[in-house]
Amino acid sequence: MSKVYTFKSREKKGSNKPEFEGNLAQGLNRRAFIRSGSQLSLLAMLAACKPKREDTAKPEKSTHKSEQPDQSLFDGKEARVIKNVQQHMFPDDGNGPDAEAINAFGYLEFAMTDRQNIEDGDPEFLKKGIGWLQDLSISSQGEDYLKLAEPEQVALLKKISASSAGENWLALIIYYLAEALMLDPVYGGNPEQVGWRWLEHQAGFPRPVEGKTYRDFD
């Protein structure tokens, strides 16, 4: 389908007129990897060539309910894996805050109680991905992922990013890292505006406050 007539092929997230960014930047892409992730087994995932994202469709529906869970989505080990992967995605490298500094994990737990994120199947897919990573680590390295040395962890993450499902899983983690980095601190990420200060982002005003967040209106 060709709808865009480009003088120079590049567009980004738009305003009051639609713009076209391929399907890489926003929801379509996110939905795409959810589906591929939920349908592929570990071996298929590793063997698969990258599918075109537009070939994928709606996500599997989650069976989770939208109420706030009374316990964490992730158990202790799962939480350590997610935190570790977040740190690889957004490291402490001297250039701005790392995943821990933006409270990426705390924000992720909050985001996983969001009705739409649950409907999109994100909590389910994130947990599946942890299992896949662990299985791959054991089958290919003979060791639990968390016990691998850092270079081996990076190599494993690079390996899974070469598959569609693996790349989609990592992209979903980054999707929520972006929210932790740039949303208002009222949602738990970006503590003391650390993300905004790093990227010199000027927030609007008035900013959201408790009792007037999007969830209070949703």
Binding site: A25, Q26, H88, S161, E167, I174, A178, M182, H201
Partner: peptide, 21 residues
Amino acid sequence: APTAEVNSLKWDDDDNLLWGS
């Protein structure tokens, strides 16, 4: 839409996922 902007930057020119430093 800074969050959307960050998310749009996570792909490189060859549509591969960009992460880390």
